[in-house]
Simulated scan of single mutants.
Amino acid sequence: MEWSEHGIVLSTRRHGEADIILEVMTEARGRHLGLVKGGRSRRQRPILQPGNTLSLTWRARLDAHLGNFRAEPIIERAAAIMADRTASYGMQLLSAHFRLLPERDPHPALHAALRTLLDGALSADAARAGFAAGMVHFEIMLLEELGVGLDLTACAATGTTEQLVYVSPKSGRAVSEGAGAPYRDRLLPLPAFLRAEGDEAPPDEEDLAAGFAITGLFLERHVLAPRGLGLPEMRQAFIRTALARP
Score class of each variant (00 low, 15 high):
I81R: 09
D84G: 02
G134T: 03
E76M: 10
E197H: 11
G90L: 02
A157T: 14
L93M: 06
D125K: 12
R173L: 03
D119A: 07
G178V: 09
P108F: 12
A96Y: 08
E177N: 14
L100S: 07
E76H: 04
R85C: 04
G178K: 12
G180F: 01
A121Q: 02
R115S: 14
L150Y: 07
I81C: 08
A87G: 10
E72M: 06
F138R: 07
C155Y: 08
H111D: 05
L187G: 01
P191Q: 14
S168P: 00
A124Y: 07
D105R: 15
P202S: 10
R104T: 05
L152F: 04
P191K: 14
E76W: 00
I140F: 02
E145R: 15
L190D: 05
I75E: 15
S95C: 12
L142M: 10
D185R: 15
K170F: 05
P182E: 09
A96T: 09
R99L: 12
I81K: 12
P202K: 07
S88A: 14
H137D: 12
G159V: 11
D199P: 04
Q163S: 13
A154P: 05
L100Q: 13
E177D: 14
A124D: 13
F138Y: 15
L110H: 09
A83Y: 04
L187V: 01
L143T: 00
F138C: 06
A121E: 02
L142S: 07
A83T: 08
P108W: 13
A157S: 13
A78C: 09
A80W: 03
A78H: 13
A87T: 13
L188V: 12
V167F: 00
H111A: 11
G159Y: 09
D151A: 06
L188S: 10
R195G: 02
P73K: 11
R128I: 02
D105Q: 15
P202Y: 02
A132L: 02
L114R: 08
E197G: 05
G90E: 01
V167M: 03
T116Q: 12
P202E: 08
G178Y: 06
A157W: 00
M82K: 13
P73W: 03
T86R: 11
G180H: 05
L117I: 01
M82V: 06
L93V: 08
R128W: 04
L93F: 07
Y183A: 14
G180S: 08
L164W: 10
R195F: 00
T116K: 12
L122F: 01
L164C: 09
L122C: 04
V136E: 00
Y183G: 05
A133S: 04
P106L: 11
L114V: 09
K170P: 00
T158Q: 11
G180N: 06
M135Y: 10
G147C: 07
S95N: 14
L122Y: 01
E145G: 10
L101C: 05
F193K: 01
G134I: 01
A129Q: 09
V165A: 12
A192P: 05
G130N: 09
L94W: 09
T153I: 06
A133C: 01
M141E: 15
P182C: 09
L194H: 10
D125E: 15
P191W: 04
Y89R: 03
E103C: 10
